[in-house]
Nucleic acid binder design. Structure first.
Length: 481
RNA sequence: GGGGCUGUGGGCUAGCUUGGUCUAGGCUAGGAGACUCGGGCUCUCUUGACCCCGGUUCAAAUCCGGGCAGCCCCA
């Protein structure tokens, strides 16, 4: 069995290198033979399953159902919505040969499934009674990144869920897009302990073919923004392209209003970046595959059985109260070795059970986030551990929130803007004239784009930071992943 | 999109400038055994590698070209 190694890169100094080391050495993931492709190993997949479970329950509570649509999309489907095609064709992977023969029409490996799903919606939607239609699918998608790839964050193939809904009115579609965004926000903040900012994308940055894109943005420790999830109101753009019409209560034909929304396995990368430290992963208890690791410690063979029995008893009591544990009883490793390995793997709490503890009817408990180590009596075991899990979860969230809040910098001029950018940290808040020209130039000259236009509106506090004309809104710029 | 760099046992790395003594060294990990275990114990024995294709050459880990893969910086 391959064994976990030490993290040698410092998070604060060589962030990118640190990230790669943590992902590989904690055995979350590994590189696959094809460029930009990765293996989600058991440890990261277990976290993905937790995300799936959480989200799946929430969408089912709100009337969505799961389905599965095909991997291959005929080119003519993609072409039906012009903006959409423009947006996605540069990164499509195409199937052109089947077996021995050239295909008459090439097939895209889905970069997103709006088009193939809407072709079916057209067939299924006839009357206002068929609405709303609210479907979701869990699947893989392919976007042929040519250059910068990064484990979890930017890979050619990744896993996600994509929801697709059709509604009778604009208002309903709006409501749907916002309801989902709220579920996402709760997932990110409560499960992953990652605070996010909510807002809309600018027209330049929105989903290709959308009326508008609502987004949740998080801040990574290197000062880059990460788009965590998006929810699009597609208006009638796609329904007109695909001729999805229904007969309304008014007995007239109408085009449906559609939404689509997704979160992907890049969330796993965000967890690593936001919470990890120089010793490796630090997992929020709500997402951790194991919330506590129990390490039995014995010096003499005669102690072995008694100690192991105690470890099993501790494990059983915790499991019964819903705390996921693992006993590391491997004889070939010393306790010190195990401490380091489980710290690398980010397990929130470590419980040591040794002869001394047996004598005193207690265990030693250590927190991963602060390394704090305390004695806990056997009676208090369950309550102390569950309380500590909550504390760790909250501490990680608060720590990240503090970092986010401290790294939103307001600027009034382009000079200040560039100066803030040179520090390479965080969101840059600026008043903007709303012209795409300014936005494009800033992006071209600095590499920073509008990350979001916050839902929480603020009055412009200066003229447009770039052109000096009258500013219309306050937006947040950032360099992003 | 532009630029720079790298690829050696499972992991990390020395060797490459100046081709030959490389039958490739070290650390770590793996296997067997002994010894122990409260922060990566120790010892003995042992397994295991020059990314792929082509070229130059008497001779290639080393030089050249291409491919594949990875990293970093800039936009």
């Amino acid at each position: 069995m391959a064994k976990a190694a030490k993290i040698t890169a410092k998070k604060s100094k060589q962030f990118s290198e640190w990230y790669t080391q943590v992902v590989l050495r904690s055995e979350l993931a590994d590189y696959a033979p094809v460029k930009g492709c990765m293996v989600f190993r058991e440890y990261s997949y277990a976290m993905w399953e937790k995300i799936q479970k959480y989200f799946d329950e929430k969408i089912k509570e709100t009337g969505h159902k799961n389905a599965y649509f095909p991997l291959f999309i005929p080119e003519r489907f993609l072409k039906k919505e012009a903006e959409h095609f423009q947006g996605f064709v540069p990164e499509c992977a195409w199937v052109t040969i089947g077996g021995e023969s050239e295909l008459k029409e090439r097939l895209a490996v889905r970069p997103t499934s709006e088009t193939v799903i809407y072709a079916m919606f057209k067939k299924w939607i006839r009357s206002w009674r068929d609405l709303p239609l609210k479907l979701n699918q869990w699947c893989n998608i392919v976007r042929w990144e040519t250059k910068a790839t990064k484990l979890f964050l930017r890979t050619r193939e990744f896993l996600w869920q994509e929801g697709h809904t059709a509604h009778a009115t604009m208002e309903e579609a709006d409501q749907e897009a916002m309801d989902i965004l709220n579920i996402y926000k709760n997932l990110m903040e409560n499960l992953l302990a990652i605070p996010v900012l909510a807002g809309k994308k600018s027209d330049l940055e929105k989903f290709a073919g959308a009326l508008y894109t609502a987004t949740l943005e998080a801040l990574m420790p290197d000062g880059k923004a990460l788009q965590m999830g998006t929810s699009h109101n597609l208006g009638q753009n796609f329904s007109k392209a695909f001729k999805i019409q229904f007969v309304g209560e008014d007995e007239k034909d109408h085009y449906v209003w559609t939404t689509s929304w997704g979160i992907a396995t890049r969330l796993l990368g965000a967890i690593v970046m936001v919470h990890g430290d120089d010793k490796g992963l630090v997992l929020p208890p709500e997402i951790a595959p194991y919330q506590a690791v129990i390490i039995p410690i014995f010096y003499k063979e005669v102690e072995r059985d008694t100690i192991l029995d105690k470890a099993r008893e501790v494990s059983k009591r915790l499991d019964q109260s819903g705390i996921t544990t693992i006993i590391d009883d491997r004889p070939e490793y010393t306790p010190g070795w195990k401490f380091n390995e489980w710290e690398l793997k980010g397990v929130p709490i470590r419980i040591e059970v040794g002869p001394r503890d047996l004598e005193r009817k207690q265990v030693v408990v250590a927190r991963r986030d602060t390394f704090e180590r305390v004695d806990v009596t056997e009676e208090q075991l369950v309550s102390a551990i569950s309380e500590m899990l909550t504390t760790v979860q909250n501490n990680l969230f608060n720590r990240a929130k503090k970092f986010l809040e401290e790294n939103i910098i307001s600027v009034k001029s382009y000079g200040e803007f560039k100066k803030a950018l040179r520090k390479r940290r965080g969101f840059i808040k600026a008043s903007w004239c709303s012209s795409q020209e300014c936005e494009e130039k800033v992006k071209e000259e600095t590499g920073a784009a509008i990350s979001l236009i916050p839902f929480e509106k603020e009055e412009p506090f200066s003229d447009c930071f770039y052109c000096g004309n009258n500013a219309k809104e306050v937006v947040l710029f950032a360099k992003s992943y």
